[in-house]
């Protein structure tokens, strides 16, 4: 799959921002005043920045409001509702907390649930696709939740929770990377089933339908960077989990914690790039490619 920067930025930043909002929402004794304001500012900047980036991959962004209509059937539509609910609920919660110094616990919990729902619906957009076997697996939503909650805890300064969740996220990510390599073969789609000619012999793509490229090849058959896939996976895991954990275990002060957070962010960006770049769509089989 083509690793579109808009979608990588969206899933990475929003995931992190929503994770931070979750921890702010369920905190029984949240920071108030300027400290609280800074936490909410960072969380909203990440979440809204990511959501805005996601509209850049739309062909017709001016019609984006129509995406709220099909929540009964479409995960993308549900994501739109969940994201707006999360922003509104957490916005109100933060507003009362910072401006009026009033902590409305139930509002925070509802907002936190909406944040989780947003991360869950985002992950389901990818998980639902049978055409991309690497994504079509129960571990994809777990990966998204683990990264969002782990990164959120890190930003929220909940060190012991962050150590536990980032370790979990690193393990899930490693499992997702390497176990995912088998899923295309397990799904059973081959050039033989794609053409229906498999029982007659070995099928080979002889002539493509056109001399140039096309939308399908650009969008679904992305082969750049596969050579360095394993190295990039190790870099992603190192930046996302290993380095932040080493820093967090030293019980760091603020500056080091910021380095841990930036390292985690960079690691998630690399992992998200691989999430798309290494995902193979079955339509490639029609072109004799994967």
């Amino acid at each position: 799959m083509h690793p579109a920067p808009s979608v990588i930025v969206f899933t990475t930043l929003s995931g992190l921002g929503l994770g931070l909002l979750f921890w702010l929402g369920i905190d029984p004794d949240p920071s108030r005043g300027w400290v609280g304001f800074t936490f909410f500012l960072i969380a909203f900047a990440l979440t809204i920045g990511g959501l805005m980036a996601s509209t850049f991959h739309l062909g017709r962004p001016e019609r984006a409001l129509k995406a709220f209509s099909q929540w009964r059937s479409s995960w993308l539509s549900r994501e739109a509702w969940a994201a707006v609910s999360a922003l509104v609920l957490m916005g109100l919660y933060g507003f009362f907390l910072i401006i009026f110094d009033t902590h409305i616990g139930i509002l925070g919990w509802l907002g936190a649930l909406a944040c989780l729902a947003t991360v869950g619906t985002t992950s389901m957009i990818y998980t639902q696709l049978k055409t991309v076997p690497r994504w079509h697996h129960w571990s994809t939503p777990i990966l998204f939740f683990a990264l969002s909650l782990g990164g959120g805890a890190l930003l929220a300064g909940k060190i012991s929770t962050a150590i536990f969740l980032i370790a979990v996220a690193g393990c899930v990510q490693a499992y997702w990377f390497w176990q995912g390599d088998q899923r295309f073969d397990e799904a059973g789609s081959t050039m033989g089933t794609a053409t229906g000619l498999g029982d007659r012999g070995k099928v080979r793509a002889f002539e493509p339908p056109h001399t140039g490229t096309n939308y399908l090849l650009n969008e679904f058959v992305y082969v750049v960077g596969r050579k360095h896939g394993d190295k990039l996976r190790l870099i992603a895991l190192g930046l996302m989990a290993v380095l932040p954990l080493l820093i967090l275990l030293t019980n760091p002060h603020h500056l080091l914690a910021i380095i841990a957070a930036l390292s985690h962010l960079a690691g998630v960006v690399v992992a998200r790039w691989l999430f798309f770049a290494q995902a193979e769509h079955v339509v490639g089989l029609y072109y004799g490619k994967r």
């Binding site: 017709r60 993308l76 769509h281 339509v283």
Partner: peptide
């Protein structure tokens, strides 16, 4: 249509 492309992603046949 907002051109999100998800329907093309979900189609195995291109």
């Amino acid at each position: 249509c907002i051109g999100c492309g998800l329907c093309a992603w979900s189609c195995p046949y291109g």
